[in-house]
Design a protein around this nucleic acid. Sequence first.
DNA 1: GCCGATTCGTTCGTTTCCGAAAGAAACCGG
DNA 2: CCGGTTTCTTTCGGAAACGAACGAATCGGC
Lengths: 144, 144
Amino acid sequence: MARIRAVDRRLFLLIEIAARRLNREADKRLKADAGVSAAQAGVLFLLLRRGQRRMGSLSKTLSLNPPAVTGLVDRMVKAGLVTKTTDQTDGRGAMVALTAEGSEAAERADIVLRDLNAGLEARLGDEVSDILHDAFTRIVIAES
Amino acid sequence: MARIRAVDRRLFLLIEIAARRLNREADKRLKADAGVSAAQAGVLFLLLRRGQRRMGSLSKTLSLNPPAVTGLVDRMVKAGLVTKTTDQTDGRGAMVALTAEGSEAAERADIVLRDLNAGLEARLGDEVSDILHDAFTRIVIAES
DNA sequence: GCCGATTCGTTCGTTTCCGAAAGAAACCGG
DNA sequence: CCGGTTTCTTTCGGAAACGAACGAATCGGC
């Protein structure tokens, strides 16, 4: 408690530290139960919910720079989770789609995420969870 | 009434994305105005507020794994922001302290952080800021 | 049809972070 | 005082993210 007093007036630092903790927790569980990292789970989740997507779309939705997406997707291709092909309608674009193996991993990851989410919201309480959700949605959406 | 809890709510992913955006924003401003990265600013802020600290203390407070602290501090030593010496009272410990240059950078970083913080809290509103602050403090403190 | 401008993704170099394991120093029971 | 344990830090290998710069493909004005 006294340990974090030095940063407790800096929401920026606080969020950074909390996000690190949550990500570490999620990464561990996801690797154990679904065999994928937290970053990969984000991609799988998107592809599962919305179908195949182009690199640029992933970049925007996940708020990742293009080089980060390239590296992330390449590792997932190597792991057999997704395929990357040239977009038929635009030769510049690269389309990312789930493989059968990727779909299974995405389902497992979805369950883990749901569970983690329930735990987090239980810790925070429903009301706070709603406020948090709204606040972060606003931050994320806030014009890119 | 509270809005319907969407099935695809994933606070974990949302926080991750939001934290990435905030960190990117902070990093950019800090590099421009104070000449340090966001991660380095966290260390500077701590040392400025609470004086010299050992590696393990930084690790705990910032919730960073030991190897991350080693790399981070080493780069800061190279940049002339801090010094790293053996703890007098415990030969195992390495003590990290601000240099004169580091103190100046810390002051500048503090101003930038204060400004960023004010902007973020203005975007969120006082009430939400307080709730967010409490929530994240709880997350950070939880199971240290 | 042609060429410059734009869009899209990748490559490059660096920073930041992780887990696992090794190394060094202090502590402690006998 | 001494061997084993504990504590603290570093080394190692890899994943993930950034900005800057580059090349390939498309689009738009002429």
